Simulated assay, not measured.
Amino acid sequence: MSYPTPLNTPIQNPRLRLLNKLRNNEFPLMTFMALPSVRMAQIIALTGVDGIIIDCEHGHISDDSMHNSVAAISSLGVSPVIRIRGPAHDILKRALDTGAHGIMVPQINTAEEARQIVASSKFPPQGVRGQGSAFPAIGHGLTTPEYMLSANQTIITMIQIETRAGVENVEEICAVDGVDLVFIGPNDLAQSLLGYVPARGDEPEFLDAIEKVIKAAKKHGKWAGRMVNNGSVAKEARERYDSVAITGDTKALQNWYMAEFEVARS
């Protein structure tokens, strides 16, 4: 049985900034957040970004910080997305119960893994997600009953393709109902395919893998995204991707300081 998804839902909610921009082909911009601070969440949210990926895989983010960051980001009209540390049902459930507008799951290698993620992220009858928290609806600006009726078709399920196995199985992964956005992790993908990072960007195997992921996403009607290092690369990516994430808070801080210190010492 086919169900409405964020890709085709008729539901309109002005609070869901990332989803609305994706549906309108407006190339929304995201960034990663690794530091556990409400103030950091607020500062990033006020930059004009459309979605902030709270990095619970590689960032210094606890459950408490995850909840606080989602609340701060969503209250400022930006979409919080949580990158969970793995596909386990309980981890995914905890992330969704913050009120996140989307989830990102790393290193998906098979269609079966993708189906399990979809099942864990959807309320019955589409999935097996349980309800018991008052918090999720707040991040969507809804009552709990309204949230229950809309969540399955408005929360963006993002899966990351960043391994050789993921690329080999990307056609089957993209065919899974409930997968909304396929996100390329270029560094892990380069490590898996080439044995080093970062990729130079001209390696045929690396370029072919990226092309295969993009084509599979488009073929199956999914959005495609990736991480990029700066605005110039993001601008170039508009032709091939539906959204990108431009680096993250830790790198942004380091880059600004190093550039200014270099100027000061020159």
Rank of each mutant, 00 (worst) to 15 (best):
E262H: 10
A34N: 10
T143N: 08
M33Q: 15
T154L: 02
A264D: 15
L19Y: 06
I43L: 11
R17M: 02
T9P: 01
S79D: 05
E112C: 09
N109C: 14
G248T: 09
S2D: 12
P14R: 08
Q12R: 08
Y196V: 04
E162H: 05
E168H: 11
A264N: 12
V167A: 01
F206T: 07
R94L: 08
A111G: 02
K251D: 15
P80H: 12
N24H: 12
S150M: 11
R15A: 11
R15N: 13
S37K: 11
A252S: 15
A175C: 12
R238P: 01
M30H: 09
V263L: 15
R265T: 13
D64E: 13
I53C: 15
P186N: 09
H101K: 09
G166A: 08
Q160I: 07
Y241W: 13
T9N: 07
Y196H: 08
T143A: 09
A199K: 02
Q191L: 15
F123S: 09
E172W: 11
A264S: 12
T250R: 12
A119V: 11
L142W: 08
M33L: 14
P136S: 06
R240I: 15
L189D: 05
A224P: 00
Q116Y: 01
I159P: 02
S150P: 06
A199I: 03
R17E: 04
C56F: 12
K218T: 06
V197M: 10
P204S: 13
S75N: 11
V179F: 00
G127T: 11
K212Q: 12
A137V: 05
V105A: 09
K235F: 08
P136N: 07
R17Y: 09
N187Y: 11
G102Q: 08
